[in-house]
Design a protein around this nucleic acid. Structure first.
Lengths: 135, 135
DNA sequence: GGTGAAAACTAGTCGGC
DNA sequence: GCCGACTAGTTTTCACC
């Protein structure tokens, strides 16, 4: 289903998604049109879910990078999800998990003060464990 | 430093990094060349760290998505990092953290069996807590 | 499923504002 | 700092293999 050439294409696009189809073709020993067709098929198969950018959150004024493991009883899940919506500007991802915790939340905050304000809101609904990313 | 137009540009590129500069310009009420110049400046300022793709790991044969919080004493950090290198095909990210744990590791495994084999290797060096992503 | 050539479109440069 | 026009290069389509 996914051959060697497809893997090389994915690697190349991961490194630079704005590469030209001609260059991409050269990297994987294909013509420009053939590379383009491959990429289209990878999109149709939802292997490639989208073309995006990597942004540096620090440079955008969100230097505090936190992972928060959420422990909550089922009756508070909607409260929790509403709280996330109200704080969506800080939320990068929220994964439902099994094992150690119910949700794993990744956030970027502008300051420790804002992080703390968020945690205060959390405390009324759920238990959590906080990990701050170093660097 | 980052005005309204820059934010719109980042949003547009987050949604589709292969958009043409002409279209991007239209979205943010700028000409193609002006949009292009803005994007270059955002790259130079390292606000944009790169152009990449979102890949669906399940479609690539890595359906098991795990977060592993690592607890280790400082003498085992190099052992741990070597172990990661030996298993790099599964590792998406490894963040050094403070708070609950020493590292937060995100991995995609082809099966629970391979996950378990990895955990067995981990056990000899470190303590960990496992969370599996649902969906 | 691939190639190569032609037409349509895009990016980058540059003068002017 | 942006616009409009120009040139070079890219994407896409298509006939063919």
């Amino acid at each position: 289903m996914l051959d060697e050439t497809d893997s090389l294409i994915l690697d190349a696009l991961r490194t630079n998604s704005r590469i030209t189809m001609k260059e991409l073709g050269e990297k994987v020993h294909l013509s420009g049109p053939a590379a383009s067709t491959r990429v289209e098929k990878l999109e149709d198969a939802r292997v490639i879910e989208g073309f995006t950018i990597k942004v540096n959150p620090e440079k955008m004024g969100y230097p505090v990078h936190a992972f928060i493991t959420i422990f909550t009883s089922s009756s508070y899940h909607t409260h929790y999800l509403n709280l996330l919506e109200a704080n969506e500007q800080y939320v990068v991802r929220n994964h439902k998990i099994s094992g150690d915790g119910c949700y794993l939340l990744e956030c970027h905050f502008p300051s420790n003060k804002v992080l703390d304000e968020f945690l205060v809101q959390l405390e009324s609904h759920v238990n959590y464990k906080l990990s701050i990313v170093i660097n």
